[in-house]
């Protein structure tokens, strides 16, 4: 196994005339959960699609590379891509209602998916996995059909299916944001457990730093196609440097029951192409120099990078 499960180097993605992601680099090490956070439109979902393959989206990888376990998968053909999806890269989508056929039993769909990837389906194995994940009625749950289940349980079944395929890397795109609070917590605990017990590496996308703080080892904050802050979770959350990271933190309702502070406006569509800092229009601390300063991630302390030094004393 290579040193890094996933390596994203200097990735730039364009859609038509728009850049959606500019020069994003980060690594996912084995047994590590990396969270990428940001508002909708910041490019975080496109990042996941770049790993999964962008074919249907009309987006294009302009520059940079995506390396999965030592193998460059940036420009794989359709057939090769299909082979690594599921077996090497697992995916838990946001909307699990859409990922299962509502009126066929889980067993049929599990079997079908496994066979499609050339993997054997052994019912006992699946039940084993369910027991390990503490599913209720682990023995009989395969006979149910998705419509009989809650959204949270459906999401966990999708995770169960991914576990069976034993991928090297798990991608989760807002996997908890449509769930109820209790199911959200269950799914998050599930994913942490998978990391601890099975040594999974997970790339987790979310807009909620509260969720991220409970699951991630590393946290990246994206804004308008650029990574504005990246580092070990405790360092980023305890000493957020970039004004945007701090704005995201202030927007989460806290234990003190103070009204959360919002952030007006939305990320510019073409923000990735700006020469200066693209957060300027929404930034409280912006000055003239910010408009022209070239974007660059600076190491503010070991294992903690930010593209702005505003938050440093």
């Amino acid at each position: 196994m290579a040193e890094n499960i996933l390596e994203i180097n200097n990735l730039t993605v364009t859609y038509g005339q728009f850049k959606i992601i500019t020069e994003v680099s980060f690594k996912v090490k084995p047994k590590e959960i990396v969270c990428i956070a940001g508002e909708s439109g910041c490019g975080k979902s496109t990042l996941i699609k770049a790993v999964l393959g962008l074919k249907q989206l009309g987006a294009q990888i302009e520059e940079g590379s995506v390396i999965l376990d030592g193998r460059d998968i940036t420009r794989l053909g359709v057939e090769e891509r299909r082979q690594i999806l599921g077996t090497e890269i697992g995916y838990v989508p946001q909307n699990t209602r859409g990922s299962f056929n509502n009126i066929r039993s889980y067993e049929v769909q599990y079997k079908e998916t496994m066979l499609a990837h050339g993997l054997p389906f052994v019912k006992a194995d699946a039940i084993d996995v369910f027991k390990k994940l503490n599913f209720p009625d682990a023995d009989t749950i395969l006979e149910y059909q998705p419509w009989e289940m809650s959204g949270g349980m459906n999401q966990r079944m999708a995770i169960g299916l991914a576990v069976l395929q034993k991928p090297k890397l798990m991608l989760a795109d807002e996997a908890t944001s449509v769930l109820d609070v209790t199911s959200q917590k269950e799914v998050i605990e599930e994913l942490s457990k998978l990391r601890d017990e099975l040594g999974w590496s997970i790339l987790f996308i979310t807009h909620n730093l509260g969720v991220a703080s409970h699951i991630a080892d590393k946290l990246g904050v994206m804004y308008a196609g650029r990574m504005v802050e990246y580092g070990a979770i405790r360092k980023v959350l305890d000493h957020p440097i970039h004004p945007y990271t701090r704005a995201l933190l202030a927007a989460i309702p806290g234990k003190d029951r103070k009204l959360p502070q919002g952030l007006e406006g939305r990320p510019p569509l073409d923000g990735a192409e700006w020469t200066g800092c693209n957060f300027v229009p929404r930034c409280r601390f912006a000055c003239e120099a910010c408009k022209t300063k070239k974007y660059q991630l600076i190491e503010v302390e070991p294992d903690h990078f930010a593209s702005c030094s505003e938050g440093m004393e």
Binding site: Y15, G16, Q17, F18, G58, A59, Q60, L269
Partner: peptide, 16 residues
């Protein structure tokens, strides 16, 4: 998505 008035064909995606 905002569309510029002059459409530059080389920059359009396949779908467009």
């Amino acid at each position: 998505m905002a569309e510029s008035k002059k459409i530059d064909k080389s920059k359009l995606s396949k779908k467009q």
